[in-house]
Amino acid sequence: MARTSVHIAALIAASCAFACHAGAEELRHYNVAGDGIAESLTGAPGDAARGRALVLARTTTCILCHSGPFPETRFQGDLAPDLSGAGNRWTVSQLRLRLVDAARFNPKTIMPSYYRTDHLVRVGRNFVGKPILSAAEIEDIVAFLATLRD
């Protein structure tokens, strides 16, 4: 089955419509240094167990595109890098920036910028100005991905 960027973007947009957890939260300021965001968005480390649950939740869309060491999860994605070994490939600050604003690494990426609200396209009227994930959810996912070592 051929997959196009338009179909994938539509799938992600539809999923994001259900996943917008952070609607009431104001974006917290962060500093990008080099290829990462060194400081936690919340000022504290995330919870890896909650992060794992978020990665596997279909509503966050991670598992729709990525696969990983999740034998209990059927129908993992194959459009994006396997998450196995993510903690070896990227630092915590690099992981954080990839979640916050994936377009910094590849302007044509289909991965949503989960903690950005500006310069986006095809944003539903109810979601304008709202990040897809909260700062705490970003930190939880970062904490989990950092544990994924080969």
Rank of each mutant, 00 (worst) to 15 (best):
D35S: 15
T60N: 07
I132Y: 15
H66N: 09
M111Q: 08
R116K: 12
S15R: 15
L11R: 10
I132D: 10
T61V: 10
G68W: 09
A135T: 07
R125K: 03
Q76V: 09
P71V: 08
H66F: 08
L41C: 03
P71Q: 04
G23N: 07
S93Y: 00
T117Y: 12
F70D: 00
E25L: 04
N88Q: 13
Q76I: 04
A17W: 05
H21D: 13
V128E: 09
L56F: 04
D150P: 13
T73E: 15
A48D: 01
L11Y: 05
P107V: 10
P107C: 07
C65A: 10
P112N: 11
I141V: 15
N106Q: 13
S15V: 11
N126G: 03
A38Y: 01
P81D: 12
I12T: 02
A135S: 11
S84Q: 09
E26N: 12
T91R: 11
G124F: 04
G124A: 09
Q76R: 04
N126P: 00
F105Y: 14
T59R: 10
I8T: 13
N31D: 14
R28D: 02
Y115L: 02
A53R: 02
D82C: 07
E25N: 10
G68K: 08
M111F: 02
A136L: 15
A135K: 06
Y114W: 14
I63L: 12
C16H: 04
G36K: 05
V32S: 02
T59V: 12
Y30A: 03
A33G: 07
P71N: 04
C16F: 07
L145R: 02
G51R: 05
R96D: 00
V55K: 00
S40V: 06
E72V: 00
I37E: 02
C16V: 04
L27K: 09
L95K: 03
F105Q: 08
G129C: 10
F127A: 10
A48I: 02
A9G: 13
P131A: 06
F75H: 14
V128C: 01
R96E: 00
E137I: 04
D150R: 03
P45E: 01
E72L: 05
